[in-house]
Design a binder for these strands. Structure first.
Lengths: 112, 112
DNA sequence: ATCTTTCATCGTAATATTGCAATATAATTA
DNA sequence: TAATTATATTGCAATATTACGATGAAAGAT
């Protein structure tokens, strides 16, 4: 991408952007939704659910893991992935903060 | 990026991903926040506020415009940008839908 | 009409992301 | 131990994103 100039922005702006990247690919959204739908933890049956190659899924899982959104535990030969509720709350809070800012402003009739 | 296989995913998943991209850069978050902070509409004094080149800001503004998040109107020599409240509500709704799904599931003790 | 200001667009360099085949690793089973 | 299964990692090729200088277009000022 050409290097993003993170030093120009606040820590919150940079963190929001990083987290938004997690949601910025339909496969990662599908993975998160699938982890939820199958109730608790679920391993990489994702490869069959989504139509992507195993290596690709694994890569997406790693990105979600690095952001702390999910976490995996070894379950025999396979790996069980699940959502990290603590982290999830943080993320929800950050985004809601952004959303609220904007809708407050619009609510008071300042938008054109 | 290597082509994203949008046909593998639902319309909602693809739309969420596209919208998330809008937030996936700190400059675009800063722009949105600045548009809010300066109450109503404001033109490209953004170039001075953020430390990026004029062409770069213009490009970010175009992306936000293409997603319908903001909209600009010519005001003499300059251009007034502002948030699009209608679209904003949609976006907030989509993200809240995703967030709620996940926190519901976590709330019922299904997370590990 | 010409200059100036403000913003958009084009072209391009640098870097990031996506996707997958091939290969490595680790636990399980025969 | 050797074979199997499930995941992770590596190494590309293709494409997208970020950033900016240079240039273009449009409105106002001189």
């Amino acid at each position: 991408m050409g290097i993003t100039k993170t030093d120009l922005f606040t820590a919150e702006q940079n963190e929001l952007a990083l987290l938004a990247k997690a949601f910025a690919h339909p496969a990662r959204i599908a993975i998160l939704q699938h982890l939820v739908k199958t109730k608790s933890c679920i391993n990489g049956t994702l490869v069959q659910e989504l139509g992507l190659a195993q290596a690709t899924i694994s890569q997406h899982l790693r990105e979600l893991k690095e952001l702390g959104l999910i976490h995996g535990s070894i379950e025999g030969v396979s790996v069980s992935y699940c959502i990290n509720p603590k982290r999830w709350e943080q993320v929800q809070g950050l985004f809601n903060g952004l959303f609220d800012q904007l809708s407050d402003s619009c609510g008071s009739g300042n938008c054109c």
